[in-house]
């Protein structure tokens, strides 16, 4: 029994089980990449995902935000609270001279807040049609910047998928080298891939 757990055995099983666990992310990244590479095929060729943002409600509201530089997290939280929303995952950026955009990543509902600094007006917007945005959101979601355990879990799995990609390469190559009949073809494919990639780096 002890002899069963050889390096080759562990290598093959790691290759397999990593793939089995990451399968949903693997399929998701595959399908969602199509929407990025062919975005002209979506939304009547506009390339814009998810349809138009529609205003739902607006309020007069005053919050202190510096004219330039990073938007303070507490100010962003205050705006989210003022809109009556609860969000653990959010981010804010300047979308124009007087406009702050607060994005609220959520797989099931597309909402965002706009704060117009000169008018001191807060606007809640929604997207009704969000299939492509949902797909894009799955692909783009990541990072540990949100104060949320579940968001961190998602980010952790994304890291696992990245490590899995690198391990598939190494474990796959180890398995390939053990099949003498495939060494020639494998080398040819690998060299062709490296040369193609290198050419793109020079001529793209």
């Amino acid at each position: 029994m002890a002899g069963k757990y050889t390096f080759q055995y562990i290598n093959r099983r790691m290759h397999l089980y990593l793939g089995m666990f990451c399968l949903p992310w693997f399929i998701m990244y595959g399908i969602s990449s199509l929407a990025f590479n062919h975005n002209n095929l979506f939304n009547n060729g506009s390339g814009q995902p998810g349809g138009e943002w529609a205003e739902v409600q607006s309020w007069p509201f005053k919050v202190d935000i510096p004219e330039s530089g990073e938007i303070p997290e507490e100010a962003t939280r205050e705006l989210i609270r003022a809109a009556g929303l609860e969000a653990k995952a959010f981010g804010a950026y300047r979308a124009g001279e007087n406009k702050i955009n607060i994005y609220l990543p959520n797989f099931r509902k597309m909402t965002q807040l706009n704060y117009w600094t000169t008018e001191e007006r807060l606007v809640l917007l929604e997207r009704k049609k969000f299939t492509q945005q949902f797909i894009g959101g799955l692909h783009a979601r990541g990072g540990y910047q949100h104060d949320s355990f579940l968001d961190d879990t998602w980010a952790f799995v994304v890291d696992v998928v990245c490590v899995a990609f690198l391990l598939w390469v190494t474990t796959g190559m180890i398995m390939w080298w053990r099949v003498p009949a495939m060494r020639g073809w494998g080398t040819l494919a690998l060299v062709a891939g490296i040369l193609s990639f290198g050419s793109f780096m020079v001529f793209l």
């Binding site: 990609f165 690198l166 598939w168 390469v169 796959g172 190559m173 398995m175 390939w176 495939m182 073809w185 494998g186 494919a189 690998l190 062709a192 891939g193 490296i194 193609s196 990639f197």
Partner: peptide, 14 residues
């Protein structure tokens, strides 16, 4: 296997 070998640089890059 062969698809994996050819696309190795892209796998590593992504």
């Amino acid at each position: 296997l062969l698809l994996g070998m050819f696309l190795t640089p892209w796998v590593v890059m992504y």
